[in-house]
Lab assay of single mutants.
Amino acid sequence: EPLWIRPDAPSRCTWQLGRPASESPHHHTAPAKSPKILPDILKKIGDTPMVRINKIGKKFGLKCELLAKCEFFNAGGSVKDRISLRMIEDAERDGTLKPGDTIIEPTSGNTGIGLALAAAVRGYRCIIVMPEKMSSEKVDVLRALGAEIVRTPTNARFDSPESHVGVAWRLKNEIPNSHILDQYRNASNPLAHYDTTADEILQQCDGKLDMLVASVGTGGTITGIARKLKEKCPGCRIIGVDPEGSILAEPEELNQTEQTTYEVEGIGYDFIPTVLDRTVVDKWFKSNDEEAFTFARMLIAQEGLLCGGSAGSTVAVAVKAAQELQEGQRCVVILPDSVRNYMTKFLSDRWMLQKGFLKEEDLTEKKPWWWHLRVQELGLSAPLTVLPTITCGHTIEILREKGFDQAPVVDEAGVILGMVTLGNMLSSLLAGKVQPSDQVGKVIYKQFKQIRLTDTLGRLSHILEMDHFALVVHEQIQYHSTGKSSQRQMVFGVVTAIDLLNFVAAQERDQK
């Protein structure tokens, strides 16, 4: 057995438009009618409502009807409940999964919650491996369901041993009777949507819809739904939504950006999952974080739909894509998950301010006199920076000697690579993860907040409520011999709460 199987392995699926269902090699399930009293909570997966979006479509000038398939009504709160249950049931049916076995899954959280929910009911041990950027709410729900959680670096490539995929496979090879159901490759993922989600949409719309818009992560949702719609409703256009920084969209030119990270969760990847059939997507749109969270908040405030950030991405694209539809036509959007997962993220004004998705003037509360002053007023001194090749031991000596707790790590040209902190280095040394002679590049981390000289002290204040420091950066445009230009970030300084307090105190003292 291989040590790991690539999540982007070539698909062996034989589905073709027009091929009889009787030739399918898979076990198919028909939607079942729910009894009045459910035998367990797993029976509350599927049969989610279709809700008309009344205000947002009109606000953006849509002539067509805009409908939302509300997947956050599933038992675990997301569309991923469907595939989690289906993968477990299919693994039980073919004898792969037996009582007492362990389920391991690399996930952005929602599939993990679905699997942990099913594992709690069915009696399996469950280990979820997820990147650090995923919300604390997801972690809390997983723990409450009895799952064990392993976190991995957000910026690790999918084929790196440190990625959530790599760590999951390492655990599988170490733990007896453990299984990775593997949402990236498992046919049960798109089949769950082909058999149930798509049929529900067709039934709820009486077979009449002209466009379907869905955000894409593993691709199982859009693949399964689109294949069924292509068979039953061939005139329906399928629109895929991919965040900026991901590479799922086609044509490839759409993916060209210097951005590699994004805040919206559960969609987009740096590889093409095996289950994603991009041939059934008629057109791709890219979405960005700001519009995703703005539209998610709009869905909550104006439509009462308590959905997550990827739902915002989907609707932001839908109001663009559906401009081509006329009166009497219908566009369906998939709202994948609930706001429950993001209470401390985009639902929080403070978080939105820190990330730059909300401006101070958007909030009406009274601010102190210094709130709208610029960061450049602080008069920061030149920063202490270190090269990635310097040793951890030497870096600790320098920081202690100069009285700093942290320093930016830059390359020879001064471009920011990340940050090192005294606390992080000492804990890594004590844990045996690094040696004093190791290069400081081994303990770089990139989960820090950046701020510009033109940003306000109010925004800085919000950042420092949650973080010990902020890195002050400025952009530099560099022209190359080819005539092309590129933008790079340079370090201007490091600012802490002490710097802000000293500035405010000094100004008030001078005024007296």
Results as ranks from 00 to 15, higher is better:
residue 238 I to L: 04
residue 240 G to V: 15
residue 243 P to R: 02
residue 244 E to K: 09
residue 245 G to T: 07
residue 249 A to I: 08
residue 250 E to S: 04
residue 252 E to K: 11
residue 254 L to K: 02
residue 255 N to S: 05
residue 255 N to A: 07
residue 255 N to E: 06
residue 256 Q to P: 06
residue 257 T to Q: 02
residue 259 Q to G: 10
residue 261 T to G: 02
residue 262 Y to P: 06
residue 262 Y to E: 04
residue 262 Y to K: 10
residue 263 E to C: 08
residue 264 V to L: 06
residue 265 E to G: 04
residue 266 G to S: 02
residue 267 I to F: 02
residue 268 G to T: 06
residue 268 G to H: 06
residue 268 G to Y: 05
residue 269 Y to K: 04
residue 269 Y to P: 02
residue 272 I to A: 04
residue 272 I to P: 02
residue 274 T to P: 04
residue 275 V to S: 02
residue 275 V to G: 02
residue 275 V to R: 04
residue 275 V to W: 04
residue 276 L to W: 02
residue 276 L to F: 08
residue 279 T to H: 14
residue 283 K to V: 10
residue 284 W to T: 02
residue 284 W to F: 04
residue 284 W to I: 02
residue 285 F to R: 07
residue 285 F to P: 02
residue 286 K to H: 02
residue 289 D to R: 06
residue 292 A to Y: 06
residue 292 A to G: 08
residue 295 F to T: 13
residue 300 I to E: 06
residue 301 A to W: 09
residue 301 A to R: 15
residue 301 A to T: 02
residue 301 A to N: 14
residue 302 Q to R: 10
residue 302 Q to L: 09
residue 303 E to T: 10
residue 305 L to C: 02
residue 306 L to I: 02
residue 310 S to L: 02
residue 311 A to V: 07
residue 312 G to A: 02
residue 313 S to D: 02
residue 313 S to I: 02
residue 313 S to P: 11
residue 315 V to W: 02
residue 316 A to R: 14
residue 317 V to M: 15
residue 320 K to G: 09
residue 320 K to H: 05
residue 325 L to A: 02
residue 327 E to S: 08
residue 327 E to W: 02
residue 327 E to F: 08
residue 328 G to L: 02
residue 331 C to T: 02
residue 333 V to Y: 07
residue 335 L to A: 06
residue 336 P to I: 06
residue 338 S to Y: 06
residue 341 N to M: 05
residue 343 M to N: 08
residue 343 M to A: 05
residue 345 K to Y: 02
residue 347 L to H: 02
residue 347 L to R: 02
residue 348 S to K: 12
residue 349 D to A: 02
residue 350 R to L: 11
residue 350 R to F: 05
residue 351 W to F: 02
residue 354 Q to G: 02
residue 357 F to S: 02
residue 358 L to Y: 07
residue 358 L to S: 08
residue 359 K to H: 15
residue 361 E to V: 11
residue 361 E to Y: 10
residue 364 T to I: 14
residue 364 T to V: 02
residue 365 E to I: 14
residue 365 E to V: 11
residue 366 K to P: 15
residue 367 K to D: 06
residue 374 R to Y: 02
residue 377 E to S: 11
residue 378 L to F: 13
residue 383 P to C: 08
residue 384 L to D: 15
residue 385 T to N: 15
residue 388 P to I: 02
residue 390 I to K: 05
residue 391 T to V: 14
residue 391 T to Q: 02
residue 395 T to K: 13
residue 397 E to Y: 05
residue 398 I to V: 08
residue 399 L to H: 02
residue 402 K to G: 15
residue 404 F to V: 09
residue 405 D to C: 08
residue 406 Q to E: 09
residue 407 A to M: 05
residue 411 D to S: 11
residue 411 D to E: 07
residue 412 E to R: 06
residue 412 E to N: 08
residue 412 E to M: 07
residue 413 A to C: 12
residue 413 A to N: 14
residue 417 L to C: 15
residue 418 G to W: 07
residue 418 G to H: 12
residue 418 G to E: 05
residue 420 V to R: 02
residue 420 V to I: 11
residue 422 L to I: 14
residue 424 N to Y: 04
residue 425 M to C: 15
residue 427 S to C: 09
residue 427 S to R: 15
residue 428 S to K: 06
residue 430 L to C: 09
residue 431 A to V: 12
residue 431 A to D: 12
residue 435 Q to D: 14
residue 435 Q to G: 15
residue 436 P to F: 11
residue 440 V to M: 13
residue 446 K to W: 12
residue 447 Q to L: 11
residue 449 K to W: 12
residue 454 T to D: 02
residue 454 T to L: 08
residue 456 T to N: 12
residue 457 L to Y: 14
residue 458 G to R: 14
residue 459 R to S: 07
residue 459 R to I: 14
residue 462 H to I: 14
residue 462 H to R: 06
residue 462 H to T: 09
residue 463 I to V: 12
residue 464 L to R: 05
residue 465 E to S: 11
residue 466 M to K: 12
residue 467 D to A: 12
residue 468 H to Y: 08
residue 469 F to S: 11
residue 472 V to A: 12
residue 477 I to V: 09
residue 478 Q to T: 12
residue 480 H to L: 09
residue 483 G to Y: 11
residue 485 S to T: 02
residue 487 Q to Y: 09
residue 490 M to D: 15
residue 492 F to T: 15
residue 493 G to H: 07
residue 494 V to W: 02
residue 495 V to G: 12
residue 495 V to F: 13
residue 495 V to L: 09
residue 497 A to S: 15
residue 498 I to C: 06
residue 500 L to F: 12
residue 501 L to I: 10
residue 501 L to K: 06
residue 503 F to R: 14
residue 503 F to M: 14
residue 506 A to F: 12
residue 507 Q to T: 02
residue 511 Q to V: 08
residue 512 K to C: 13
